[in-house]
Design a protein around this nucleic acid. Structure first.
Length: 589
RNA sequence: GGGGACGUAGCUCAAUUGGUUAGAGCACCGGCCUGUCACGCCGGAGGUUGCCGGUUCGAGCCCGGUCGUCCUCGCCA
């Protein structure tokens, strides 16, 4: 061992180490020069330890005075109890300090583009600057904590699934493009000019083939790539816990994942998740929350008042109902005096962003309503309305009338907006409302391409009782598909798969694929289904989003060591970047 | 591709209605300091107000364009 190498980390020295010699390696976190006395806080990923340079060794003191933030140093010294009253209770190592005997500067550091040390009252530097120098940003303790949490998450998953008999298997990154679904990232083949690999959107087909091969419990922590536009919770490459089981139905998948979720929150955060998790049908989620991934940390449920609206004299309501639309509302409890006319106008702007024409509102008072539409509401209807929305004096009712899809979108997003504006939940509380959403429709109509598209993916099994309606009424076919929702984020999704080649062929047909196209694209799957495929199903959990939940951040870049920016660029390396002509030539491009 | 927000010192921000030499804190440099811990005190340096153009006696501020970043709609089986 070289004489500069550490004997302890910067987070481990305690009272019990007093009078022992120690060598610490780390970064100068802060530097305090008092003339004849220099203190430095030495930092590594385990913690911070105070080192003191005293005047008895003039040469060493002078060397210490050269130190600056983020120098990498090795300090040899003796662990000492701090002077009485000088302990630092904010520091795990705060009872002691290291009295330096020698100092070796392993590397110097210029003034950095931004400061590493985080202060509560100082904003972080711009994110693009921090992404450009991600290796510096990652020195921040809050990011180190997040990556630690993410590591713990993956360790808990591996341990749990191993204990439950799951086998971790890797599947290819270079595969075949499947035109259904997201846009593929393509990789040109040098050996086969004009031919292309696609990077996987998910290991979906491979894991099904593993089931056919008999690996009845499989998992993989797999990178997935989709060439679509980014969001605060979406990166072009992301990580899924991909999992599949044979001889199972929905409840079996739910059971495994519920146990896993409980283990994750217990072991990562010490939070107990009550099981079984609540289950919500898709139609109910859309009705009550306007959203298939509802945030269940707060109320503000949506109530259908179409029938009552039909009994009013309000032409806006009546004409929309006659056109087959819906009128739905939310009781914003106790909010009657929290919104001025201007505030209500702003809520109207929110719903307009989602296609609604406007927002009707009622302030609930003891005896009557105050509202621009009050005069259109007969007394008995007002009483019924009050009852339907469980209105009390001081409440605010808001309504959107439109086609059902727009009502859901508008009120669903208004609900989210209101909850945030009225602070109906604490984003920093360890409050996790986890639920299953199931009973999804199998197909959605793609107006642009004038065809049915798979709502989940084309390998999702329809409900047995809906099989007969596959060709005659695709819209009414429900799927054996399910999503796992945490605090308003879709954190997982899966399904029972089709294991019957005929059903699979019928699905391809509904999706507008000719048998020849189906065979050309998915022949290997159809063969596999013919050759002894067991019933199977599974799920994929979004690891990045789980990490976001654990870390309580709304930004996916916070939980990825080297993320892309919103325009899919890596600001640190500059990728994507041009390549040499020679490289293109080799690829026949 | 559409909508919105933002861009001022190395960093975070300020700059009244368009009006003097664009300020502050942190960081940086020099000096002082024997118990600091976001040390303190004194002094100093640091600016193409993203970029281009326009309006004006005068632009950080108004207008047009452009670049960049974030949020969002579309998209994400």
């Amino acid at each position: 061992m070289a004489d500069w190498q550490r004997t302890h980390t910067c987070g481990e020295l305690r009272d019990s180490n007093v009078e022992q010699p120690a060598v610490l390696n780390g970064w100068v976190n802060t530097y305090r020069n008092q003339g004849s006395l220099v203190f430095i806080d030495l930092r590594d990923r385990y913690g911070v330890t105070q080192v003191v340079f005293e005047p008895d060794n003039k040469e060493l003191l002078e060397a210490a005075q050269e130190l600056r933030s983020e120098f990498v140093v090795s300090v040899t010294g003796i662990v000492a109890k701090r002077l009485p009253g000088k302990e630092n209770k904010d520091l795990a190592t705060g009872a002691i300090e290291v009295k330096a005997r020698s100092l070796s500067i392993l590397n110097r550091c210029p003034t950095l583009p931004f400061e590493i040390t985080e202060f509560s009252d100082q904003e972080l530097a711009n994110e693009d600057l921090r992404l450009q120098y991600r290796f510096l940003d990652l020195r921040r303790s809050s990011l180190q904590k997040v990556l630690l949490l993410r590591h713990r998450l993956c360790q808990v998953i591996r341990a749990y699934l191993d204990q439950h008999g799951f086998l971790e298997v890797e599947t290819p990154l270079l595969g075949r493009s499947t035109p259904e679904g997201a846009r593929d990232y393509l990789v040109p083949s040098r050996v086969h000019p004009g031919n292309w690999y696609a990077l996987p959107q998910s290991p979906q087909l491979y894991k099904q083939l593993l089931m056919v091969a008999g690996f009845d419990k499989y998992f993989q922590i797999a990178r997935c790539l989709r060439d679509e536009d980014l969001r605060a919770d979406r990166q072009p490459e992301f990580t899924q816990l991909d999992l599949e089981m044979s001889f199972v139905e929905m409840d079996d998948v739910f059971h495994v994942i519920e146990g896993l979720a409980a283990a994750v929150f217990e072991q990562c955060l010490g939070v107990k998740i009550p099981l079984p998790l609540p289950r919500l049908k898709y139609v109910d989620a859309m009705l009550r929350f306007g959203n298939d991934k509802p945030d269940l940390r707060y109320g503000l449920e949506i109530v259908d008042v179409s029938e009552l609206a039909g009994q009013t004299e309000f032409q806006v309501f009546r004409s929309i109902l006659e056109a087959g639309g819906k009128v739905r509302g939310i009781n914003v409890s106790g909010a009657a005096d929290k919104f001025s006319r201007k505030g209500l106008d702003e809520l109207g702007e929110v719903v307009k962003r989602y296609g609604a024409k406007g927002l009707a509102w009622i302030r609930v008072e003891a005896e009557r309503f105050t509202s621009p539409i009050e005069k259109f509401l007969p007394g008995p209807v007002q009483q019924e309305m009050r009852r339907a929305l469980n209105g009390k004096p001081g409440d605010l009712f808001v309504f959107v009338a439109d086609q059902e899809e727009i009502v859901c979108q508008a009120l669903g997003n208004l609900r989210i907006h209101l909850a945030s504006q009225l602070k109906l939940y604490d984003p920093m509380a360890l409050d996790y409302q986890i639920a299953w959403v199931f009973d999804f429709p199998s197909f959605i109509w793609n107006e642009e391409e004038k065809r049915w598209a798979a709502n989940h993916h084309p390998f999702t099994a329809p409900m047995d009782e809906d099989l007969a309606k596959l060709e005659s009424a695709p819209a009414s076919v429900r799927a054996k598909a399910y999503d796992l929702v945490i605090n308003g984020y879709e954190c997982g999704g899966g399904s029972i798969r089709i294991h019957n080649p005929e059903v699979q062929s019928r699905i391809f047909a509904v999706l507008g694929m000719t048998p020849e196209q189906a065979r050309q694209r998915f022949g290997f799957l159809l063969d596999a289904l013919r050759m002894g495929a067991p019933p199977h199903g599974g799920i994929a959990l979004g690891i990045d989003r789980w990490a976001m939940m654990l870390a309580q951040t709304a930004n996916i870049r916070d939980v990825i060591a080297f993320p892309k920016n919103q325009r899919a660029r890596d600001l640190m390396t500059g990728a994507p970047a041009p390549v040499e002509k020679k490289q293109l030539k080799e690829l026949g491009l």
